[in-house]
Design a protein around this nucleic acid. Structure first.
Lengths: 209, 209
DNA sequence: GTCTATAGGCTGATAGAC
DNA sequence: GTCTATCAGCCTATAGAC
């Protein structure tokens, strides 16, 4: 998992992981810096040595989560032909990343909602805007492929790509709510689950012959 | 919308709505009791006259949101034959309720995540467990209908009902994240959107002939 | 790099006036 | 029913020791 953290010191990486877990369990505001430090048996001082503020720490966690998602989905996109095959591969990679980076993706989901951070410096505002933009770019990849699939006739044209994408992605993203790491250990079980989810979304509930 | 609030005084009802909006915008922990009171141009004292604590206020908002959802879905269920037709009607009603009770349903979504309220009294713990149970009962309605649809062959049997339901419902529930009341005014526009979402989930992305 | 100590601000909850 | 005043606790962030 090292890759998504790029170049980070040991402590910094451990803090990021601890923060992701705390934010997932209790949410941003209910998590104290002491909670994060305590989780790796350190104290507040260490956190403030590595991060400027609690919000910057949150942003870093978000960035790691989005980076993991973007890389996985972009890579999967290239393995298949444009259109429906690409979308299918993207969704499967997307789901697997949701499981592997569970805590981080939970934070990403929170971040989407938290437009209103009480007080943001202008630097933080810029960072925040970039994170929102990265989320839009991910969705844009999907919209492009769905539009291509509509053009080649493999996806029905009577629903706007943006609506279809939001709906389908919701099915994947919502897994942060109900999926638990304990539930299914091992890559094999995760792959089976991811494929069932993707199949449900691509083929629909209804069976036709 | 009065119905879902059952018997409530005027002030109490306004406070519930204000609380739902605050919790939606800032989240439970970031919302202060003063924020809620200020939104209806009142003060803290009023809130504590009507509700025992901030957490009880949250629980009441959650209860209203879940009640609205349960009633709408249960009613829709009866309008169609068991199995796929029932599921389709349930999803459409579900989506429409997500829009109509947007702020409340946003809080319900938060509530699912907040397992760990720092300090709950035993009474609060019981209330909380009942709210979680009400959520499970809603999902159970869907699982039952999907299983019936698998039995009559209208839904493929190769995905467990619980997985299919969680995936499909995710597509609907996630709309609290991206849908905004300003976006589409009027019942007509909402109905069109709801039907596009449901169609995407029932028929799938892929088109077949 | 990591820790301790502490300042300073905010907020949940209560008491009591009107 | 609604408001004002206030307390007690917690938590972010900083300063400075080691």
């Amino acid at each position: 998992m090292k890759d998504a953290f790029s170049t980070s010191s040991e402590s910094r990486m451990h803090l990021l992981r601890a923060a992701a877990e705390c934010f997932m369990e209790r949410g941003f505001h209910a998590t104290s810096i002491d909670d994060v430090a305590r989780r790796i048996r350190a104290t507040k001082g260490l956190v403030y040595y590595h991060f400027l503020s609690k919000m910057d720490l949150f942003f870093e966690v978000y960035r790691v989560g989005m980076a993991a998602l973007t890389e996985a989905v972009a890579a999967a996109r290239k393995t298949e032909h444009a259109g429906l095959p690409a979308v299918t591969a993207m969704l499967e990679a997307h789901a697997l990343t949701m499981f592997e980076y569970h805590a981080f993706e939970h934070v990403v989901a929170q971040g989407v909602q938290l437009h209103r951070f009480s007080a943001m410096t202008s630097v933080q505002r810029m960072t925040f805007d970039e994170l929102v933009a990265s989320r839009d770019r991910l969705e844009q990849m999907y919209r492009t492929e769905v539009a291509a699939a509509q053009a080649d006739g493999s996806v029905s044209g009577d629903t706007e790509p943006s609506i279809a994408v939001k709906t389908i992605l919701g099915g994947i993203q919502w897994s942060v709510i109900w999926w638990r790491p304990e539930a299914d250990q091992g890559l094999e079980a995760r792959l089976v689950l991811a494929r069932q989810m993707v199949r449900t979304l691509i083929r629909g509930l209804e069976v036709r012959r």
